[in-house]
Design a protein around this nucleic acid. Structure first.
Length: 111
DNA sequence: TGGTTGACGGTGG
DNA sequence: TCCACCGCCAACC
């Protein structure tokens, strides 16, 4: 504990991501109040060992999974378990399942 | 206190 | 479509 306010806010935002939805590092950073702190989000996620934080729902921009170092396939499996389609390391319907912070009760949105 | 690293974003070639 | 450069922010040494 004893994380910075920004870190706590980031964790809170990530925990707010609905099941079946994903968000990018940039989006989480923006929701946390630092639109330019996308890199910092990666560090926080990496350092985050909290099971209540679905870090696998946080991916890179363009629908890429990111995390080439580790957890890449972990995210892949977890995302597949949530009914998402991953194609060549990227979400097939990324724009459709992208979560912009708004409480969209309609999960399966047919675009 | 200062410099480097890293699960990134966006633009250009 | 893929690769390279620059910018931005927090954690670590």
């Amino acid at each position: 504990m004893g994380q910075s306010s920004f870190t706590l806010r980031v964790l809170c935002v990530v925990r707010s991501i609905p099941v079946g939805r994903v968000s990018t590092y940039g989006d989480v950073a923006k929701l946390a109040g630092r639109p330019r702190a996308a890199r910092a989000i990666g560090n926080i996620m990496r350092n985050c060992s909290d099971q209540s934080v679905p870090c696998h729902r946080v991916i890179a921009a363009g629908g890429q999974l990111g995390g080439f170092r580790n957890g890449r396939w972990i995210k892949h499996s977890l995302l597949l378990a949530e009914g998402l389609s991953v194609r060549r390391g990227r979400l097939h319907n990324f724009p459709s399942i992208r979560w912009d912070g708004k409480n969209s009760h309609n999960t399966t949105e047919p675009v």
